[in-house]
Amino acid sequence: MTSTTTFEKHRESAQTRSSVALTINGQRHELTLDNRTTLLDALREHLNLTGSKKGCDHGQCGACTVFIDGQRVNACLTLAVMHQDDEITTIEGVGGVEHLDPMQQAFIDHDAFQCGYCTPGQICSAKATLEEIRAGIPSHVTKELTGPIELSDEEIRERMSGNLCRCGAYANILEAIRQVAKERA
């Protein structure tokens, strides 16, 4: 095994910052970042996009959920420097106070949050849940792997389980998602 000293020497001499161009909500941002910067910290600390929340910083709560190239991910567990040329969408890109996305409106209509801290992540996941069902991606509760996927309460609950809500707004989140699903149908 290589000694720790060698590692530390490397760290001191090596280039530990990188330039990266991030495309966020359609806007390109040229940044030079410490390689350690997560996408979440790049958003919150460097771009003042604080809608994506830091609840645990370890992929265990889902408050930081954003879209990368259309797929939902935990922004806390990916490095910003790995997302050159990727299309990133955050809650700010989903909708603003003056132009709410239907899912955001549905969350208000059904009181699908209380403290609001997990909410942006919940909304991103809620939108992704409907897309993933539409795309035919199964889940843990899908009855027949090779059959069509039902847009059932059980499916929604399972697919939303990567977003913790300590205020316990789950029942209302479900209602909000159902409202949007109904509007779309």
Binding site: T78, S139, H140
Partner: peptide, 16 residues
């Protein structure tokens, strides 16, 4: 295999 994968983690983590 499909079942085991979907029994693990969350959608966000599985995507990545």
């Amino acid at each position: 295999l499909s079942r085991a994968l979907f029994a693990g983690a969350s959608s966000q983590l599985r995507n990545k």
